[in-house]
Design a protein around this nucleic acid. Structure first.
Lengths: 95, 95, 95, 95
DNA sequence: AACGTTGAAATAGTTC
DNA sequence: GAACTATTTCAACGTT
């Protein structure tokens, strides 16, 4: 095995190749995406709108409660709601 | 005026300098931001929450009325929104 | 089949789902990439440099030479580099 | 002044507003930058290269040398560049 | 086909 | 130094 300034050429080569393989697959998927959009378009759909729908579904999926959460944070910052502790639980003084 | 491979050194220099001046100002504003957050923090506010509030206000500003858009129709088709009647109103059974 | 303003909900749904499936695969590949970089890093490699190498391997050699030549010309025009003579050699006054 | 849960809504409002004002200015500067690049482009300059130049001017020279040295080592390890001898010179068999 | 526009991916910077 | 956020960069698309 050959070393260059203390690094192993063989290992480096393998990392590079793995990354390039993944990159190729990503590129393939990008092509797939383009194909689907082309089909949809020729089927009379508006691709821009489809993209918006995808975005919204993603938002809905990932942050379904986030709007609520943001609103809560806002109100909490203004003292309109009771505060939460570190665990996200209602903080309550035991007197 | 001196040319290097057909480009004017003088013009290039001026563009570069304008960009660097703008960059400095941006950097100054970044510092301002940091200062405000530091103040807020020492005033007992939670900076993370303030950032959330800012994000929220920005979103509110950019929010558009989807109902009149094609997007509404598509989301409706996917059951992501309730249906509208012929007059474009929300359809609601009166029981 | 239900139509909404003339568009087929069923077809739309299928396009959306295909796109979302592709999107998931892309996301998986992104995770793979992160993993490889993590491995490389823990093996003592510099990830930033690896990214540079990938970029260079991806780019056509002519493109790189071109880009670097352009960069040199601009830096020379700004006095960031010494000037070259007609043959592209370092020009030096012999006094 | 009104207090909610011990924090001042008025102060919060002021912090928010200062931050939003700064944000606007930043946005204005971003527009300025775009304008300068547009001018440079219509003057025949390559904007990508200008960005590279700015980066180089910003970075400490040592950092650049370091980074380029590392890149060279990696490319050499991958056979993308010819090897160097102990003195850092191009090694060449004399046949 | 060059241009600007848009959206997504990569990178840099900041915070804890 | 790891996660989060902001910024920059890159690629696709429609437009002129």
């Amino acid at each position: 095995m050959t070393f260059y300034g203390g690094l192993s050429a063989e290992h480096l080569k393998q990392f590079i190749e793995r990354l390039e393989r993944i990159e190729e697959e990503k590129s393939g998927l990008a092509d797939d995406t383009k194909m689907v959009f082309a089909e949809a378009k020729s089927g009379g759909f508006d691709t821009k709108t489809i993209k918006e729908v995808l975005k919204h579904r993603k938002l809905d999926k990932n942050t379904i409660d986030e709007q609520e959460h943001l609103l809560g944070a806002y109100k909490r910052a203004l003292g309109m709601l009771p505060e939460l502790d570190k665990e996200g639980q209602l903080w309550k003084t035991l007197s």
